[in-house]
């Protein structure tokens, strides 16, 4: 998949009026979290990392977003959503139970922990979870499909799209305060917005994106 916004980096705007001090502090902290578990056990961590790789397959040509660590911090701080479905345990428990159950499913069908089986097989298991086809005593009544949509995919994707690398990928303007935007009409961009590469014009877009700031 060719990059749609080659060379665009939201972080290049860090020192411009698009970022205020609170934003710099918040993003700096997020970008500097160590890629290691604080909440999850090593076994859970390995499973979680493998899941993250399948839910968000990241490009190889840049540093990967430490998605698992971001999810782990959410658990460490017990940052909840403000609700849970009646069929679900609390957030931390749901994750612990779901990771163990997925791992158990991998061992049952492939004789190996989830992180050790091939990507294709991992996808099959995740798909089965999403379709609610996984069950067993490890789930302890928690519906697999609800865990998948309300916790697993929800938390992993929220973590990934809180990271500036994901914003670069989709051409999002990123932080914007005090400077917001001026040009609002179709196909208009401010000079501090990403340039989209039209097919065949990637080099020009890259050059323009290097000037964004």
């Amino acid at each position: 998949m060719p990059e749609r916004y080659p060379g665009y980096d939201v972080l290049a705007k860090r020192a411009t009026p698009s970022w205020n001090e609170p934003t710099r502090r918040v993003i700096d902290a997020r970008l500097s979290i160590p890629n290691e578990p604080r909440f999850f056990t090593m076994q859970e961590w390995e499973t979680l990392t493998a899941i993250c790789d399948r839910i968000v397959p990241q490009p190889k040509d840049r540093a990967p977003v430490p998605i698992a660590a971001l999810v782990d911090r959410k658990m460490t701080n017990d940052e909840r959503d403000g609700y849970r479905q009646a069929s679900m345990p609390k957030m931390q428990q749901a994750w612990q139970r779901g990771l163990a159950a997925l791992d158990a499913a991998a061992r049952a069908s492939h004789g190996a922990p989830f992180h050790a089986i091939a990507a294709v097989k991992q996808d099959v298991l995740l798909k089965a979870m999403q379709n609610g086809e996984l069950s067993g005593p490890e789930w302890n009544g928690m519906p697999a499909h609800t865990f998948f949509s309300e916790r697993l995919a929800h938390d992993i994707l929220a973590a990934y799209y809180s990271h500036s690398s994901s914003w670069n990928e989709i051409g999002f303007g990123g932080p914007a305060s005090p400077r917001g935007y001026v040009r609002m009409n179709f196909n208009r961009r401010d000079s501090w917005e990403a340039v989209e590469a039209k097919p065949g014009h990637e080099a020009a877009a890259r050059k323009a994106n290097e000037r964004v700031g």
Partner: peptide
């Protein structure tokens, strides 16, 4: 999820 999601997100 996976590649299908990333492709959809690219159209943001």
């Amino acid at each position: 999820w996976g590649d299908a999601l990333l492709r959809a997100m690219e159209k943001y």
